[in-house]
Design a protein around this nucleic acid. Structure first.
Lengths: 154, 154
DNA sequence: TCACAAAATGATATGTTATATCATTACTAT
DNA sequence: ATAGTAATGATATAACATATCATTTTGTGA
């Protein structure tokens, strides 16, 4: 992520939190920054290590988990359940409301693309879920793929 | 799962393995049986514990993982990546070819329903993935829901 | 501004899931 | 029978996650 858009995202995160009456503390902001700067999803422990390197401050894994919980609850970050790692939300700086996130995870280079899922797919999924008698609670789709570069290389 | 369909499934698993030239050993079969008998997905460690109870034989977690890997590779079981648990495939006894599995996971009672995903959804997903330049490798969708009973209760 | 309450973070312990590696046992085929 | 392969056991350790209580920081209202 470029420096300007990084600053923009952090700025917007600040604004969003202020609006929702929550506090984006320095450490939470740093964790978000690390996620924004990373090409790939990071685990809580990886974040703790990077925090140490980049900000020269030791931070317990326990605290990282709590900060991640905060960021996820504010939709500033997402947890990828299939890999137990975290990524910054791609849409922090966008105005538009959050939709069902769909993640394309490259199993080779681990880059993740967050794409908006189309209305047609949501509707179709919702229909098949309802037919089965279920009710969707946390719609989030994670698809394991190869990205363009890695699929060419393979 | 009823006793007869349990026996049928185990029988069919045996046949499938023979056909693919792999060996459904006694312990692998027992692990599959435990999965078939369970209402909910089980972790490797839970399986090790149940194995002890039901078959009065101690089995190391390491071995359970290997047996699960085997069962998954033979499509006799599935791993739920979002919960790190395993379930028997619902379609062992069916003839029809395996399609993209879609799992509806009840976050309250943990029951899982494996439904066939409709062609329309697959196509739509595939299209959006391709548009993003990606190639699906292990299509499997896990949706977190409430089942009919639990959503009524809530 | 001071004191209090609430929120955030630290410290410590422990539980849960997963993999690496080397030794041993069991099956298969010549 | 025996060599080679597949399966399992044993042991250690890594990686991910939560519970709990203590301490620090922050915001609020007297």
């Amino acid at each position: 992520m470029h420096k300007t858009s990084l600053q923009q995202a952090l700025q917007q995160a600040e604004t969003n939190c202020r609006a929702s009456g929550s506090r984006l503390t320095e450490k939470r902001r740093h964790i978000l920054q690390l996620l924004l700067e990373s090409d790939t999803p990071l685990s809580a422990y990886e974040l703790a290590a990077r925090y140490q390197e980049q900000f020269h401050d030791n931070i317990p894994a326990m605290s990282v988990y709590r900060m991640l919980d905060f960021l996820v609850s504010e939709t500033l970050a997402h947890k990828l359940n299939s890999t137990n790692k975290y990524i910054a939300c791609s849409h922090i700086a966008c105005d538009h409301a959050h939709e069902v996130p769909q993640f394309l995870i490259c199993d080779n280079c681990h880059q993740v693309k967050e794409i908006g899922i189309s209305k047609a797919i949501i509707d179709a999924l919702d229909k098949s879920v309802k037919q089965a008698g279920y009710v969707l609670t946390q719609p989030q789709i994670e698809l394991h793929c190869l990205c363009a570069a890695c699929s060419r290389a393979a």
